Simulated scan of single mutants.
Amino acid sequence: MTVAVGDVLAERSVHLDRESLVRYAGASGDFNPIHYRDDIAAAVGLPGVLAHGMLTMGIAIGTLGEAIGDPARILEYGVRFTRPVVVDPETGADLMVMAKVGAVEDDAFRVDLTVTFAEATVLVKAQVRVRA
C-alpha cells in the first residue's frame, strides 16, 4: 500500500444508542452502571450515560482496519481519552472518525485518528503504526 502524508484513508460516522452499550457490555463483561443507568451516572457527577472508552477506541481502530484491508498490519495503537461520549436515551450519539496518514517510514506509516462527538475531540494522540 503506497501512502503519502496527508492522505485520508477512511472516514465514517457511527451511531451509538443505548442498545449498542448493552451489547458492548455483554461482549466485554464491563457492566459498570454508568454505561446504562442515568441515575447512577448522575449520582457520580456525570452528564449522562457514557459510552465505554474501549468501545470508542475500538470503533476508531475498526475504521482503519477496514481501510487497510488486513488488520494484522497494525503494529501499535495508542490513544488518550479526553472527553466522554454521552449517549442520550432518545437520540443516542454520533461518533465521527477520520484516519489520516501523519508520517511515512521505510517499512511502516503512522495514521492519526481524529474521533469527535458533538464537534468535540474525544480521543487525542490517537495514533496507529501500520506495516507498509
Rank of each mutant, 00 (worst) to 15 (best):
G65P: 05
R37F: 02
G62L: 05
A41G: 07
A4C: 03
G45T: 08
L16F: 14
E19P: 00
G48L: 08
Y36N: 12
G48D: 06
A41H: 08
I68A: 01
A4G: 05
V5L: 02
I59E: 09
I68W: 05
G6Y: 01
A42N: 00
A43H: 06
M54A: 13
A43D: 14
V49H: 02
H15L: 15
E66P: 00
V14M: 12
N32W: 08
G29V: 06
A10I: 13
H52R: 06
G62I: 09
E19T: 15
F31H: 15
V5S: 04
G26W: 05
L50F: 09
N32S: 15
A27I: 10
M54Y: 12
A42L: 04
L21F: 13
I68T: 00
V49G: 00
N32E: 12
L21P: 13
G45E: 11
V14P: 03
T63M: 03
T63W: 02
P33W: 13
L16W: 02
Y36P: 00
A51Q: 01
R37A: 12
V8M: 03
L21C: 14
A51P: 02
D17G: 15
R23I: 15
H52P: 07
I40H: 08
S28A: 15
S28G: 09
G58L: 08
D30V: 13
A60V: 07
D30G: 10
D17F: 13
V5W: 03
D17M: 11
G65W: 02
G45F: 03
G45K: 04
Y36S: 14
A25R: 11
R37L: 11
A67T: 08
L21K: 06
V8I: 14
A27F: 08
I68F: 04
Y36E: 07
A60H: 00
A42H: 12
T63D: 07
G58I: 06
A4M: 03
V8K: 13
F31R: 14
M54I: 11
Y24R: 09
G65K: 04
G65L: 04
E19I: 08
A42F: 03
D38H: 02
G69Q: 01
D30W: 08
L46Q: 10
G45W: 10
L55D: 00
P33Y: 12
A43E: 12
G26V: 05
P47M: 01
A25L: 08
G6D: 06
G69T: 11
A27G: 12
V5D: 00
N32K: 10
A43I: 07
R23Q: 15
H35C: 05
T63F: 02
H35Q: 04
E66N: 03
G6L: 10
Y24C: 12
M57H: 04
A41V: 01
G6A: 05
D7E: 07
G45C: 01
D38V: 09
G45R: 07
G62R: 01
G53W: 03
G58V: 13
A27K: 07
D7F: 04
G69M: 11
D17V: 15
L16Y: 05
P47W: 04
H35F: 02
G69F: 09
A43T: 10
G26R: 15
G69V: 10
H35T: 03
H35Y: 07
A67N: 02
I34Y: 09
G62C: 01
V22W: 14
R18L: 15
G6E: 10
D30S: 13
G53F: 11
T63L: 04
G45D: 07
Y24V: 07
I40L: 12
G65V: 06
S13I: 09
